[in-house]
Design a protein around this nucleic acid. Sequence first.
DNA 1: CCAAGAAGTGAACCATGATTCAGTTCTTAA
DNA 2: TTAAGAACTGAATCATGGTTCACTTCTTGG
Lengths: 212, 212
Amino acid sequence: MAYRETSRVRERKQATRQAILNNALRMLNESGFSGLQMAALARQCQLATGTLYRYFSSKEALCTAVFEYATDIEIGRVAAQLQQPQLTAPEHIAAALTTFAKRALRAPIAAWALIAEPVEPAVNHARLRYREQYATLFSRAIDDGIAQQSLPPQNSTLSSHALVGAIAEALIGPLAQQQPQHLNQTIAAAVQFCLQAITAKPYPTIFPDQEC
Amino acid sequence: MAYRETSRVRERKQATRQAILNNALRMLNESGFSGLQMAALARQCQLATGTLYRYFSSKEALCTAVFEYATDIEIGRVAAQLQQPQLTAPEHIAAALTTFAKRALRAPIAAWALIAEPVEPAVNHARLRYREQYATLFSRAIDDGIAQQSLPPQNSTLSSHALVGAIAEALIGPLAQQQPQHLNQTIAAAVQFCLQAITAKPYPTIFPDQEC
DNA sequence: CCAAGAAGTGAACCATGATTCAGTTCTTAA
DNA sequence: TTAAGAACTGAATCATGGTTCACTTCTTGG
């Protein structure tokens, strides 16, 4: 035997892998998963198509990796807001939602790709984990608030999902096309909407038992 | 000349067109737009593939028509709840959100297709109209509530989008997998969340001016 | 320097699924 | 009954885009 992988090679491969992910993330920002094509990606990376398959066994695997890579970044930013010392739970949540919203507006296509674009089953598992992570982050913050009595008792899991949904829909959809100078107000209003939902005293349950 | 379209033929064509839409809607319910394939649809309709193209110029046109057909049904149901006499605005909205939620849970794939599945540009225009219609319905109801003082002043457009987003995310995502016997409670909780958001007295604006 | 083993290449291949079109069948008015 | 004009058919065609693989180039221990 005459060849054995050395650390120099290992690092170069690691760098290539990272470059692939970075380029894929850029493409994700430009056109979502559906615009992420193997041939185009290879060109971006100055690699041959086949080479991509030495790093990822399939497009699905690549997408999953990109998804997780992007996710880790996003989740990290939001988590950081929730960990600032000296803030109450509502303040934490307001800060986190604002970060979520600002980042989503800055990279709307990627945000949509992470949140809503339908993808292969394997990528969808990654998405479920992503949502789960958000849900966990927010629901933990809500539970903290309940414990320290800065928030009223509530189903924190449901609230956390609803929070993310409200922000996402309010910002990603048609409203996101509006003038940039109004965006901050829109974000503030959406955050306010969310805070009202979680801080208000329980609204008497209305459950019209209609058929539908 | 010996042939001229008669009303009998016109009606038969109309029926065929409707049958295509109905079958397409059923397929949409089973597997979303991505599972809506021309050959399979033709088989369902007992027609040849080519015949579909006599009724719709392309798959995109067909999808758009199906989208609008499905949309009209959904919007109609929600609108009906908002028009019940003798109810206050919060009651109207609770009823409408409940209907929205129940229907979404009964046909989750179609709901996801209408709300989130990425589609051709033309279909996307239809989706924007769809969201716009929802937004209009709810924002009008909110405006009514503000006028009759059953709701506090607020940005009704934003609130309406956030309402739909909160319900959709709370119900379409992971939560929808839960046991059916808990669904009603989940719906009630999500509706309560929404009502708290729109009925609460304004929460002092927090707008952390962080970078993100 | 050499040979073994990897990594890299990209044109060819393949799968999927929309679209077409030449031929067939149906409908109608004369 | 007949012929003009539609409507219908479905196999063939086309487009897209992921995946493969025979071949070339690089890396490394001896």
